[in-house]
Simulated scan of single mutants.
Amino acid sequence: MESIKWEWSIVVFTMIMLVIASCSKDEEFESPIPNDPKEEVILLPVVVHVMHKGERVGEGPNISEERIKRQIEILNEDFRRKEGTRGFNDHPDGGDTKIEFVLAKQDPDGMPINGINRIDTTEVQVPILGYNQNHFAQYAYWDPSEYINIWTTPLPQSTECLVLGISTLPETDLPGIKPSSWPGPNDAEGILINWIHFGASNIDCFAKFGRTLTHEMGHYLGLLHPWGAGDCENNDYCDDTPAVDKPVYGNQSFLGCAGETVMMGNYMNWSHDEVMNIFTKDQIARMHYVLENHEGRKALQSSPALD
């Protein structure tokens, strides 16, 4: 498998993360994003490949079905801005994405499934891949035009609060997603989440309410970090996310470019899970553009896995 371009969400003690997607307002590119997304709700199928090392179901990386279902509920609460949940906001620039995620109802052979594919990695031998490659796609990778592949990775407990998640970006003509960050012809598309940060838990970490998947799904559907390339002239091509020239961490807001208050609660920041609660209208329009124009993302909407 060739090198894979991924968008990392990694936190270390020095709070330095790796970013591969950046964008510039200086690029001569007129955004093709429509003003309003579709009114009907779009359903997208997901399969969760649970990678484990022989643990019983519900122990360690072999996470329980209940935890997986709750994570998908959280994802939908966030994307649908569901009232009465952590995903609700009444911000004038916020909105309901009209996108929902469904655990796949059948596998690639047409057999009924609960959307969970458990794999004991100790029973399968695969090559060790180099850095920045999706090692786990060798164990399981379903057609990305029919499933959003999500892998929960069996990392050691010592990675808690250090390694969160990673996602591929779509190949699109949207500004900011450059060809260098597109998946290659033999690259696997999907999302990896450290099992420790999949779903809600009581771990002693700022990322414990299931927002890692919300953030990475935003990348999968074409969203960038609000700080873009890291200066006030570069952004995420969403006018309703206040410009900021540096990564946004924590839970305390501050003034960004032009004296605007940073939108600390935006899902595409590296904010604490407890304060995340908003996709803006421009971000929503951008995701809908990907769903309407990216061949694979568009095909998901008619996937047999939804039946």
Results as ranks from 00 to 15, higher is better:
E2R: 06
K5C: 03
S9F: 15
L18P: 01
V19K: 13
C23M: 12
S24M: 05
E27Q: 05
E30R: 12
S31W: 06
S31E: 07
E40V: 01
E40M: 07
L44K: 01
V50F: 12
M51Q: 14
E55G: 00
E59T: 13
I63Y: 04
I63A: 01
R67W: 08
R70E: 15
R70V: 14
I72Q: 02
I72K: 05
E77I: 08
G84L: 06
R86H: 05
N89G: 03
D90A: 15
H91M: 00
H91E: 09
G95H: 00
T97K: 05
K98C: 05
V102Y: 11
K105Y: 02
I113A: 12
N117Y: 07
I119D: 08
I119E: 12
D120C: 08
T121E: 03
T121C: 11
V124M: 08
V124K: 13
V126I: 14
P127Y: 11
I128L: 12
L129I: 12
G130K: 08
N134T: 13
H135W: 09
F136A: 06
A137F: 10
W142Q: 06
P144S: 04
P144Y: 04
E146H: 10
Y147M: 08
N149G: 00
N149C: 05
T152Y: 08
P154F: 09
P156V: 04
T159I: 08
L162Y: 11
E171P: 01
T172F: 09
D173T: 11
L174Y: 01
G176D: 09
I177P: 10
K178E: 14
P179F: 00
S180C: 02
A188C: 03
E189N: 13
L192C: 07
A200L: 03
A200P: 03
S201E: 06
N202G: 04
I203P: 06
I203V: 14
D204G: 02
F209Y: 14
T214I: 15
L223D: 00
L224E: 00
L224F: 08
D231W: 11
N234V: 08
N235H: 11
Y237N: 14
T241W: 04
T241M: 02
A243K: 13
V244E: 07
D245Q: 05
D245S: 14
P247L: 05
V248P: 07
V248Q: 01
G250E: 08
S253T: 15
S253C: 06
C257N: 05
G259K: 10
T261Y: 03
M264S: 04
N266C: 03
Y267A: 02
Y267R: 07
W270F: 14
W270C: 03
S271C: 09
M276N: 11
T280K: 07
K281R: 15
M287Y: 15
V290Q: 07
E292M: 03
N293Q: 12
G296A: 14
R297N: 08
R297V: 07
K298A: 15
K298P: 11
K298Q: 13
S303I: 04
P304L: 03
D307R: 10
D307W: 01
